[in-house]
Structures are given as structure tokens and as C-alpha cells.
Design a protein around this nucleic acid. Structure first.
Lengths: 163, 163
DNA sequence: TTATTCTTGACTTATACTGACCAAAATTAT
DNA sequence: ATAATTTTGGTCAGTATAAGTCAAGAATAA
């Protein structure tokens, strides 16, 4: 329970969120410099807001271009699949999940058309890659790998659910 | 607050893209001088547009000839089989790739309908997760993170192209 | 206190555009 | 035929603009 603390970050976040709401396409373009001026802060503050609030884990995509006519585009992805269900599934993943369990879960999601075969493929490759790195590069213990697998899986599933 | 104005480059890009669309063969011929005149710019601006927008990584080839009856031909690439595409994609990623570059590549692939927005989102989450782990959990050097990013990206894109 | 999140600014990198100079192919003059 | 001329396009370096990164210090939460 937090009191109405309004950090600059939060204010900027709300501003961008509102722009996104007003624009029905769910996509807006900004100038970093202008935004920074409007809120009387340093430009890199905008990057912080984007990184911490409009991350892919939260269902957003950010595109940008430097130099002349530079811009920052924030895209809010909106999917029509049953959000509630996916969130519930993220709960189901829990703190730790084995490779076997995760595979079963993904098969299940695909069978129920929550994710496409291609999406499942991407997720499996990502999980597998993390597993490999953890095992042979960083010498992560099996249980800790299960923790990390759960983390990644939840991030991906919630990113799909949000929107 | 002013919205980002579109650049000359973008306008010329759209013009060429439209010509390509109208022409079924996926191949058009241009006169550099005429184009430059039409858009009131210096001829080398056209080269810039071609280099930055119609490069191989964007799925195009450019051929040209100087002298009398000179021309510039823009050709849209198509792949005959999966393997070709895999090789091409792996080539684009290379051994190492920065966060910025990978983001640009994904935007590109989505624009070309090689991947869907959802797929792009999942991939970004996976890349970001690996980046975070590498940075704060395993203390991986920036360059090594670029290597790992390239590895993961190639694995994912390859799996998609082959699947 | 300790850990996390926020904020800042110095430094780095990327993009757009121009213009001067270079290179090649076709045409014309010798 | 050959050389000169004309017609194209190519390259590169410079200038201006705008965004990204990183790390350290400040503020806030636990």
C-alpha cells in the first residue's frame, strides 16, 4: 500500500500511457528531447522510463531512430486471447519448473490455441538456450535452473497476456 | 509538443516502395537525376536512401549502370527455400549483435512479415532476459553479451525458418 | 541500515543531408 | 577507328541533429 508518491518517472509514465490511450492505434511517436524539456529533466530520464515501464515484459515494443528526424515510437500490443487465463497460467508456472513440466505446459497452451506452433517453438528455443548457458557456461545448479526457467516462462507468458 | 516530422529519406523510400508494389515483378528502374529533381534534393540523396532502406538486410538488391541511358534497378528479394532464408538471416545477425541492432533487425523482419508482432515480442523478452542475466547475475562482459545475443537470435530465427 | 529505484550528466553512437570530386558508358567529332 | 564530349551514376567526407549508454550519486522503500 503506497501513498500517492509521484516520482518524475511515474508522471512521465502516465503521460505516455495517456497518449497511448488517446491514440486508438495503440502506437505513438515521441521526441526524446521534447519530452525531457516538457518535464524539465535530462533526456536519458526518458530512456529510464521506457526501460522500466514500457518493456516487452509489459506488452510494449519500443522502436527508435537517432540522428536527424529521430524519434521514439512506443507500441502497445493488444491481443484478444483470454488474458485471465494466461495470467492464471503464469501462476501455474510457480517459482520453479522443470524442463518436462514446461514442455507439457506449452503443448497444452498450443493445443488450446493460446499460442501458435511458431510461438511455442520460439519459447522452447529460448528456454533451451537459457538451460544450456546455465548448465555449461555458468555452472548453475539444477534447481536454480528451474527457478530461472520459471522466471523466463512467466515473463514471456505475461508479456503475451498484457495488452 | 511537435510530432516527429517525416524525413525526405522516408518520403523517397515510400515513393520507391509504392512503385515496387504497383509493379508486379518486384523490380523497378529509376533515373537518379529525375528522382532527385522530383524531390528537390541532391542526387547523392538517392544513394543514401537506397543504401539505408533498400539494402540486402531489408530484402532488396540494387543494380545500376552509369553513362548514357544509365539506370538504377531495385529488386525485391525472394527466397526459394528455407535453407536459403536461414543462411541469409544468420548472415544478417553475424557473430555479434548489439541490443540496438537486434531491435532494428526485428522491426525489419516484422515489417517484412517474416515474424508477427507477438513473435517479435516473445523474442525481445527472451533477448532482454538473457541480457539481464548476463549483466547482473553472471557478470558477462558487454562484448560477450553481444556474442550470446547473436547466438540466441540465430537459434530462434533458424528454428522459425526451418520449422 | 540496507536495498532498490530514481535522476543526472558526460560521453558515445547513429542518421540525414549536402556538395565536391570521381568513374563509367554512350554519343559525337575528328 | 579514336579521341573528345556528354551523360549518367558512385563515393566520401563534413555538418548538423538526435538518441543510447553507463556509472555514480540522491532519494525512497523495506
Amino acid at each position: 500500500m503506497s501513498l500517492p508518491s509521484s516520482s518524475l518517472t511515474q508522471i512521465i509514465e502516465e503521460y505516455i500511457a495517456q497518449l497511448l490511450e488517446e491514440n486508438e492505434v495503440g502506437e505513438i511517436s515521441l521526441r526524446r528531447k521534447d519530452l525531457a524539456e516538457r518535464f524539465g529533466c535530462v533526456p536519458s530520464q526518458i530512456n529510464y522510463v521506457l526501460r522500466s515501464r514500457f518493456a516487452p515484459e509489459n506488452g510494449f515494443l519500443v522502436e527508435s531512430q537517432r540522428g536527424g528526424h529521430g524519434y521514439i515510437k512506443v507500441i502497445q500490443l493488444t491481443f484478444n486471447n483470454c488474458d485471465e487465463e494466461v495470467v492464471h497460467l503464469a501462476d501455474l508456472v510457480g517459482n520453479a519448473i522443470t524442463e518436462q513440466e514446461s514442455r507439457k505446459l506449452l503443448v497444452n497452451l498450443q493445443n488450446r490455441d493460446v499460442i501458435s506452433p511458431r510461438e511455442r517453438l520460439i519459447i522452447e528455443v529460448a528456454l533451451r538456450s537459457q538451460e544450456e548457458n546455465g548448465r555449461s557456461l555458468f555452472d548453475v545448479s539444477p534447481y536454480r535452473r528451474d527457478l530461472m526457467r520459471a522466471e523466463l516462462l512467466k515473463k514471456i507468458l505475461t508479456s503475451l497476456a498484457l495488452g
